[in-house]
């Protein structure tokens, strides 16, 4: 089944991951798992150099139609982050922003993080947040109803808190990729917030998409749920016509 993957990264990680880290390795995984589009951010930008990483990501997205870009922004550098958004978000391949609390050493509660999210909300309708505090995400969801917020990893083993957020806020979306494949969490979410706010995100090529697909396969999705999660919800967020099947 065709998929839209809302959580990927271009670049290297400091782990023993042979044959990973390039646009080619992402495309190869997309082909293997029938992923039509992958929205990704640069691991160089997260780990070290925001501007150089975003430039690499943009170059890859220009070269490979399958790859879409989250512009990575860093609350430690608000002005430079705004410049990055203004540089890339007008591009067709740029679909939103990515923020990361631990790599930027900035919790979601920090004033500078709130300032950055206000800047994001003024420029795009999609942000993916590597989690922080549920109260802050809820505050952003209320303050910026036109901003769709993907909660990367859905707080891991604390997924009930993420599900509660999604129930309370229609612009909160859940992505369940995780380094441990918790059994039952997708069904738990489906029963409470429905399939409309769950997206497929793999975290490739840090993780193999099969690992995350397993939590969806294990949830015994109906055809309708599968189509929503694997394709239609991501398509709606990206402004792609829902043609999955």
């Amino acid at each position: 089944m065709k998929k839209i993957d809302m959580h990927g990264h271009l670049g290297y990680w400091p782990f023993a991951l042979p044959n990973c880290g390039t646009a080619d390795s992402l495309v190869r995984l997309c082909e293997r798992y029938d992923i039509e589009r992958l929205a990704a951010s640069s691991s160089l930008a997260l780990n070290y150099d925001m501007e150089a990483g975003n430039a690499e990501m943009a170059e890859a997205a220009r070269e490979h139609e399958r790859l879409l870009m989250y512009a990575y922004v860093n609350p430690n550098f608000i002005a430079r982050s705004c410049a990055e958004m203004d540089r890339y978000l007008p591009e067709e391949f740029a679909v939103g922003c990515k923020i990361h609390t631990s790599y930027s050493a900035t919790p979601t509660s920090a004033p500078r993080m709130h300032e950055l999210v206000a800047e994001i909300a003024g420029r795009t309708s999609l942000v993916k947040v590597h989690p922080g505090d549920a109260a802050d995400l809820g505050q952003w969801a209320r303050a910026y109803p036109d901003l769709n917020i993907i909660v990367a990893h859905s707080f891991g083993s604390n997924y009930p808190a993420a599900v509660e957020l999604a129930v309370a806020h229609p612009n909160i979306y859940l992505d369940f990729c995780c380094s441990h494949a918790g059994r039952g969490k997708v069904r738990y979410a489906l029963e409470r917030c429905g399939a409309g706010q769950i997206v497929f995100g793999s975290d490739m090529d840090l993780l193999d998409p099969a690992f995350t697909m397993a939590v969806f396969v294990g949830a015994n999705l109906s055809d309708e749920e599968r189509r929503a999660v694997y394709y239609d919800n991501g398509a709606r967020l990206l402004g792609i016509l829902p043609t999955g099947g």
Binding site: G11, G21, S43, L44, Y48
Partner: peptide, 11 residues
């Protein structure tokens, strides 16, 4: 280079 510390050694 701190690039080698925080991102990738070879580069």
């Amino acid at each position: 280079s701190l690039h080698a510390v925080w991102y990738t050694g070879p580069q």
